[in-house]
Design a protein around this nucleic acid. Structure first.
Lengths: 168, 168
DNA sequence: ATAAAGTTTCAATAATTTTTGAAAGTTTAA
DNA sequence: TTAAACTTTCAAAAATTATTGAAACTTTAT
């Protein structure tokens, strides 16, 4: 396969995976493009490469910055803004884990906690089933939260070393 | 909080989490409803509880069966079909992991593998950057895949025991 | 101050995804 | 058989989400 074709395939695959995981296709594609680009790119270059509008490019880039996945760069003597992706895949994974934990897991933990404290008649099957499911999900969510917390602090080699050794 | 209100809140929270993770809101809500229901429910009961149409209910239930999260039940002397959710949260987590691994991770691993084999000029920064990103993502994806594989075979206590002990 | 270069915003439009509801299909019992 | 009870399908409609593009805004250089 040609490099040019391979790049397109990578961008497409990343976009598809993103959309399956609740991340806007275009956002995932812009990220993919920057990931495989050795140089920082301008908004115009990104618009051209992916055939998207200026407005879309601008909003997507802003979101990616919000996720901590890319940053703006300025080149000496130039007005234009350049965008550059962190290429360290472990950083990326941690950054995504950090944001999703904050945006999604934590609010759910909060609700589960409130729901854990609902009191009722232990004889009532409706209550018992509700309580058991909520408590079990809560425990699982707390374990996931703890594991993510560890991941956020960990070095890649140590993390996978520990996990894969145990599971070997 | 009243049990009735708590149930609604749980269904709502589960639906929201689902939609953030690329799972249809209604599907997550039906799953939530069945999770906290001590008895199997009919299509009609589900339609009523969530105010959804018969068509929607039917398709959603079919999808949930496809994900291995619920099953049909028949009660003696009744024509109606009843639906019942597996309440074991560890089974649920494994089932979801299994399906998403198959549907999403494996296709991506396949593409990454193809892209890893693209050859080019080691002096070309475009090629070098592409290759490095693809290889790094590939390694991460393989580690995730191995960990999921272990999870699929594991008992809940052993799994979290091992992970949390290492990370303590 | 002005104009050029560049960035941001957002209402309108387009695309996608979800839902409806009624018709077609199936199963069971009499 | 027939018809009642129930399930499935799917084209059309609704809802949601993403994208465009042009105007407004900001910054910099002269």
């Amino acid at each position: 396969m040609e490099l040019a074709a391979a790049k397109l395939k990578f961008i497409e695959a990343w976009g598809k995976l993103g959309s399956e995981w609740g991340i806007n296709r275009t956002m995932a594609q812009v990220h993919a493009l920057l990931l495989i680009s050795p140089e920082a790119l301008t908004t115009e270059e990104i618009m051209d490469a992916l055939s998207i509008s200026r407005g879309n490019a601008n909003m997507t880039l802003r979101d990616l910055i919000g996720w901590g996945l890319i940053e703006k760069q300025h080149k000496a003597g130039e007005r234009k803004e350049y965008f550059f992706a962190d290429k360290d895949v472990w950083n990326i994974a941690r950054q995504v884990a950090k944001e999703r934990k904050k945006r999604e897991l934590e609010p759910v933990l909060k609700v589960l906690n409130e729901l854990s404290s609902v009191v009722g008649d232990e004889k009532d099957p409706e209550y018992k089933t509700f309580k058991k499911s909520v408590n079990d999900i809560n425990k699982l969510a707390v374990n996931v939260d703890k594991t993510l917390e560890t991941m956020l602090k960990a070095e890649e080699n140590w993390f996978w070393g520990s996990i894969l050794k145990v599971f070997k």
